[in-house]
Design a protein around this nucleic acid. Structure first.
Length: 425
DNA sequence: TGTAATGATTCTTT
DNA sequence: AAAGAATCATTACA
């Protein structure tokens, strides 16, 4: 204020207060008639009051303010005031600093955009949303209803986020509120420019500031939306946290394949796809399952022997009953290890291996029953390749579990007795 | 409630 | 890139 006061004095613009007729409050009535003192104190006071009034214009009602603004604009001293303000501005260095902030498309913003798009938050609404997902889940075989429930729960939550995101974004999107606000500010500035010096550049700069502010709000919005989605994902989609056992039927299908391709339990991509379809799980889940199965089987063959027998019987029965169209069990005929790829020297051979494996922990009766179920009628041929669960056979045929030699592998768990095995032959 | 089973992940190996 | 191996985290069950 002091500075301004001095400037005003310097220019000889000692305004005795804006006139009452202008609509402004009469200031200190005494001052109006008081001759300027030598030290200029009263003048300074006047000026301070005037500026104070200008500042408070905005606090007043619209009509009032309008009237006062008008009065101010028409005041005879206005040009002088304008000049003074110009000078002040010049002196206080309030000029526009050249803003070279070109904002080269923030990479982080791009990442956020991409992620939101990928999560289906930003992009176009996916028609049907949860309904479609549920239908798809149902179509996939009806397995794991839990899964689809959870999935739709996830989708619901996601669409909530999506809604909030869009309604918020709408508020700050360039073009709507932002433009409105910008125009408003521009109008204000234009109007003010009649009273104080405002260059078009300054207006432009202000617009820039507003836009940046709005986009930073948008950025924050996107960031927190991303966060929300991530949290949602981690809560709902982290399979490790929300593990569900596969359905019985799915496990059965997988086991059937596994034990019927025991000599080479590495389903081809197509086989995996087919299994995945059958089981209502993903291909990678099939891969996981086979990975786990192979390693666990190998680690403790004895433990799985019973299971192997069961599936061997199953397969045998299904084959004899012709329940499966293909010669070889459940999946694609192209799968590795299909019947043709290896020959059993004879069912007896197979059982030798099995029995040696069984050791004492598995009742011979089981093996016997299996033998009986298979032997009569010479089923051996028809199931030839499918029943290869003898480690000996396995090793002989490429040995996917070279290390699976019962004697060594099962040792720690000791399990089924020291299976010494078949290597002998 | 403790434990085995099990699906998934991560790191290493091939 | 796929498989093996170790491990994690959850589920199922006695």
């Amino acid at each position: 204020m002091d500075e301004q006061g001095r400037l005003l004095q310097a220019r000889g613009v000692g305004m005795p207060g804006l006139p009452v007729q202008g609509g402004l409050q009469p200031l200190n009535p005494h001052q109006l008639h008081e001759p300027p003192s030598d030290n200029g104190e009263p003048r300074k006071q006047d000026i301070g009051d005037i500026l104070q009034q200008i500042m408070t214009i905005t606090d007043q009602s619209l009509d009032e303010a309008q009237a006062k603004k008008h009065a101010l604009n028409c005041h005879r001293m206005k040009p002088a005031l304008f000049n003074v303000l110009c000078e002040i501005k010049e002196k206080t260095g309030l000029s526009i600093r050249s803003n070279q902030e070109e904002e080269p498309v923030d990479p982080q913003l791009m990442r956020l955009d991409n992620m939101l798009l990928a999560e289906g938050v930003a992009g176009p609404e996916k028609g049907g949303g949860s309904a479609a997902a549920a239908a798809a889940a149902a179509a996939s075989g009806g397995v794991s209803p839990d899964n689809s429930i959870e999935h739709s729960d996830y989708r619901n939550k996601l669409s909530q986020i999506r809604q909030i995101y869009h309604s918020e974004l709408e508020k700050y999107e360039q073009g709507q509120a932002c433009n409105e606000f910008t125009t408003h500010v521009m109008n204000l500035l234009r109007e003010q420019s009649r009273t104080r010096p405002i260059s078009p550049k300054e207006i432009e700069r202000m617009v820039g500031i507003i836009h940046r502010k709005f986009s930073s709000i948008q950025m924050q919005l996107k960031q927190s939306t991303c966060e929300a989605v991530m949290i949602l994902r981690s809560r709902f989609l982290d399979a490790r946290r929300k593990r569900r056992n596969f359905s019985k039927q799915a496990t059965e299908v997988l086991n059937e394949y596994f034990y019927s391709h025991l000599s080479n339990p590495y389903p081809s991509e197509e086989a995996k796809e087919e299994l995945a379809k059958k089981c209502g799980i993903t291909v990678s889940q099939v891969s996981n399952w086979f990975g786990n199965k192979r390693i666990r089987y190998k680690k403790n063959i004895g433990k799985f022997q019973e299971e192997a027998n069961i599936y061997a019987v199953k397969t045998a029965v299904s084959v004899t009953q012709g329940t499966h169209s293909g010669a070889n069990s459940p999946t694609t005929p192209t799968s590795a290890g299909s019947s043709g790829s290896f020959n059993l020297s004879g069912s007896g051979d197979m059982f030798i291996g099995m029995q040696s494996l069984n050791g004492d922990s598995y009742p011979a009766t089981q093996v016997e029953s299996l033998r009986h179920s298979m032997a009569p009628g010479g089923y051996g041929d028809s199931i030839s390749g499918s029943q290869m669960y003898s480690p000996r056979e396995l090793r002989a045929n490429g040995g996917w579990q070279e290390a699976a030699t019962p004697s060594s592998v099962t040792s720690p768990t000791e399990g089924p007795g020291s299976v010494h095995s078949d290597t002998s032959n």
